[in-house]
Design a protein around this nucleic acid. Structure first.
Length: 229
DNA sequence: GCGACAG
DNA sequence: ATCTTGTCGC
């Protein structure tokens, strides 16, 4: 008996009250659902997704910021604050953050054409990082941009913006260490859902013309970590 | 048994 | 993630 159910729009749904062991099993069963090729429609609205915490971690605050593409003009922000129900466990981040993110997504009046997520996509021990998990759940195209490495081996890429090197797990390419700013620490880009790695890197570079992180994520991050509202 | 370990 | 001011460098 599967632990998830399909929805009518390509996404899936499952319980969140799980033990770490059950969560890992669920990730393994969801991993095959990730579509690693481009299945994108025209990009009109892209969204940045990020999460912050308040009250010593007791409250989870998720923000989804929708911007126009390719102009990246802020269009709508959705925020949700829900009680934190899962601890931070490396590899199980989605069980701590996604419930709040889904709440924020539900408050959006527009459906994003692509999600830029703060964290890994398939660059994960079971190929089910937050970006991949969120993509499979919503059925929406998604990509992951991590500020640091969770798993995988790599060699430091060149110093110029646009330089990159493969993030490897055994003999599989699970992501790309990409320099978005010359001389600045690179980011870890990986497939989330319905976007191939090449396209993901191209979009991340286009969305981060001046700063290390993509503009949609910067905006969501700012709204998620400001201690007011 | 000993490290590594997204946010 | 969060606690936190100023400071070094392009």
């Amino acid at each position: 008996m599967v632990a998830w159910v399909e929805t009518d729009v390509g996404g899936v749904s499952h319980h969140w009250d799980l033990t770490p062991a059950q969560a890992r099993d669920l990730q393994a069963s969801l991993a095959p659902r990730v579509i690693r090729e481009d299945r994108l429609g025209p990009l009109r609205h892209v969204a940045g997704v990020d999460v912050g915490f308040e009250d010593e971690g007791r409250l989870t605050r998720a923000v989804v910021s929708v911007l126009t593409w390719p102009d990246m003009v802020p269009l709508e922000d959705a925020l949700a604050r829900v009680p934190t129900v899962f601890p931070y466990v490396p590899g199980l981040l989605s069980f701590r953050e996604i419930p709040a993110v889904l709440e924020a997504l539900a408050r959006l009046s527009v459906t994003p054409d692509l999600l830029f997520c703060d964290g890994q996509g398939i660059a994960h021990p079971r190929r089910m990082g937050v970006a991949a998990h969120l993509g499979v759940l919503t059925g929406l195209p998604a990509l992951g941009v991590g500020k640091s490495r969770l798993t995988g081996r790599f060699e430091m890429p060149g110093e110029q913006r646009g330089d990159g090197s493969p993030l490897m797990a055994d003999d599989e390419v699970i992501g790309r260490v990409l320099r978005t700013r010359t001389g600045v620490k690179p980011v870890f880009v990986s497939i989330g859902h319905r976007v191939c790695l090449e396209t993901a890197c191209r979009l991340v570079l286009e969305a981060a013309p001046r700063y290390r992180l993509p503009e949609p994520i910067r905006r969501a991050d700012r709204l998620a970590s400001r201690r007011d509202r």
